[in-house]
Simulated scan of single mutants.
Amino acid sequence: MICENRVVIVTGAGRGLGRSHVEALARSGAKLVVNDLGVNRDGQGQGTPVAEEVAAAVRAQGGEAVASMHDVSDWQDAEALVRQAVDTYGRLDAVVNNAGILRDRMIVNTTEAEWDDVIRVHLRGTFAMLRFAGAYWREQAKAGSPLEGSVVNTTSPSGLFGKPGQANYGAAKAGIATLTMIAAEELRPYGVTVNAVAPVAHTRMTADLVSDPDAARQLAPEHVSPVVVWLSSLRSRHVTGRVFEVSGKRFGIAEPWRHGPGVVPQDVMTPAEAGQIADTLLPAAMVPERMGGNL
Rank of each mutant, 00 (worst) to 15 (best):
D71N: 06
V72Q: 01
V72H: 02
V72F: 02
W75K: 05
W75H: 07
Q76P: 05
Q76E: 06
D77K: 00
A78G: 13
A80Q: 11
L81W: 02
L81C: 13
V82G: 00
V82F: 00
V82P: 00
R83M: 09
R83Y: 07
R83F: 00
R83D: 15
Q84S: 09
V86H: 14
V86P: 07
V86F: 11
D87L: 02
T88H: 14
T88W: 10
Y89P: 02
G90E: 13
L92H: 15
L92M: 09
D93Q: 08
A94F: 08
A94M: 10
A94L: 14
V95I: 03
V95A: 03
V96E: 02
N97Q: 07
N97K: 02
N97R: 07
A99D: 02
A99H: 01
I101T: 10
I101D: 03
I101W: 03
L102M: 14
L102P: 00
L102A: 05
R103V: 00
R103S: 12
R103G: 09
R103K: 06
R103D: 14
R103Q: 15
D104F: 09
D104A: 10
D104Q: 06
R105I: 13
M106T: 04
I107Y: 14
I107N: 07
I107H: 07
V108Q: 14
V108G: 12
N109Q: 11
N109S: 09
N109C: 12
T110H: 13
T110Y: 04
T110I: 12
T111L: 08
E112V: 15
E112L: 15
E112W: 03
A113S: 14
E114C: 10
W115S: 10
I119A: 11
I119R: 07
I119E: 05
V121P: 02
H122S: 09
L123M: 10
R124H: 13
G125M: 11
A128T: 08
A128Q: 08
M129Y: 12
M129I: 02
R131K: 14
R131P: 01
A133Y: 09
A133W: 12
A133T: 08
A135F: 12
Y136N: 07
W137G: 04
W137A: 12
R138P: 08
R138W: 05
R138T: 07
R138K: 15
E139V: 10
Q140R: 15
A141H: 10
A141I: 10
A141Y: 07
A141Q: 04
A141L: 01
A143E: 02
S145M: 13
P146M: 01
P146Q: 10
P146R: 06
L147I: 15
L147N: 15
E148D: 13
E148F: 07
G149W: 07
G149M: 14
S150V: 07
S150E: 00
V151I: 11
V152S: 09
V152G: 02
V152M: 05
N153E: 05
T155H: 04
S156I: 04
S156R: 01
S156Y: 05
P157N: 08
P157A: 12
S158K: 02
S158P: 09
G159E: 06
L160Y: 04
L160C: 06
F161E: 08
G162V: 15
P164C: 00
P164T: 03
P164A: 15
A167Y: 05
N168T: 00
Y169H: 06
G170T: 01
A171I: 00
A172T: 03
A172G: 01
K173W: 04
G175T: 15
A177P: 13
T178Y: 05
T180I: 09
M181P: 06
